[in-house]
Design a protein around this nucleic acid. Structure first.
Lengths: 144, 144
DNA sequence: GATTATTTTAGAATTATTCTAAATCTTGAC
DNA sequence: GTCAAGATTTAGAATAATTCTAAAATAATC
């Protein structure tokens, strides 16, 4: 994990958002920081709760707005592994997600193989790939 | 696509549900039929609307219950490609999903390559893999 | 045929997300 | 600097998606 200085970080955010026609605001910065501080794939609601600690006036709608802005600008990924709330992930390095069906925790997993050879129908344009592996995590496997 | 006779179909459902400790009920049959009749990855709400045509007394909660039963018994798959309602798919042959970010349609896609080589952390047990490809479908690509 | 377990039902309740309209902030033009 | 235009935030309402509840219906077991 490359550490970025506060300044580099801010510049990175400004650039990425700017390229999408969006501004860097204190709220967006805050939401991004929350995602980076604890990479446990929180839901929007969880991000809201955490962001509120530093910025008590932040509103629900703003958190959704900020998360959308970050996703649109390529600063975060939306993770939808199950019914229920969407989760968010600031790890933009190519990776997949392991979802424990038992404790519902999401883990990042490396994807050593490129997913080549998927033949799409004529005219379809692929953007990103989302790989989710469902199963049981080590903790939960032990308990059984 | 192998066609199954009415009888084989019913027997298949009974077996699969039975193995999970569940019964085949008229409602579960109906919901399954809806999924098979039009394989467009409907949401629970859409399944409800379609099921109602044949079985007007069926309730909302029952559709959710039936869909859960089918998923648990390996008769259908849950497809979660985006925020918003979960979709359902009765195609149990290994395949991935293409999601058009523009028109929000889901397409089944073949997966010629086995997704081998994903190294999970010690003790993690993989169940199924879910591969989703986001992008633009042929129709939507033309419009731009 | 009574008992028990499963399933369905309608509707309420909960959760997740989006919308709305007003207030605030930024930015660029003058 | 000041103003207008546009972007963003806010609180709260509205909507959408899903789950829960308790009673009634159905089916399986003894």
């Amino acid at each position: 994990m490359k550490a970025r200085s506060q300044h580099q970080d801010e510049q990175h955010l400004t650039e990425q958002l700017g390229a999408t026609g969006l501004r860097l605001t204190p709220q967006r910065q805050q939401v991004y920081d929350v995602l980076r501080q604890k990479r446990d794939h929180p839901t929007a609601e969880e991000v809201f709760i955490r962001a509120k600690k530093q910025m008590p006036e932040i509103s629900h709608a703003t958190v959704y707005n900020c998360l959308d802005a970050l996703v649109k600008s390529g600063l975060a990924r939306q993770v939808t592994v199950d019914r229920g709330a969407t989760r968010f992930c600031p790890n933009m390095v190519e990776h997949g997600h392991f979802y424990c069906d038992s404790c519902e925790t999401v883990y990042d997993v490396e994807l050593p193989t490129e997913l080549t050879g998927v033949v799409l129908p004529e005219g379809f344009q692929a953007g990103r790939y989302e790989i989710a592996i469902h199963g049981t995590c080590a903790e939960c496997a032990k308990k059984k």
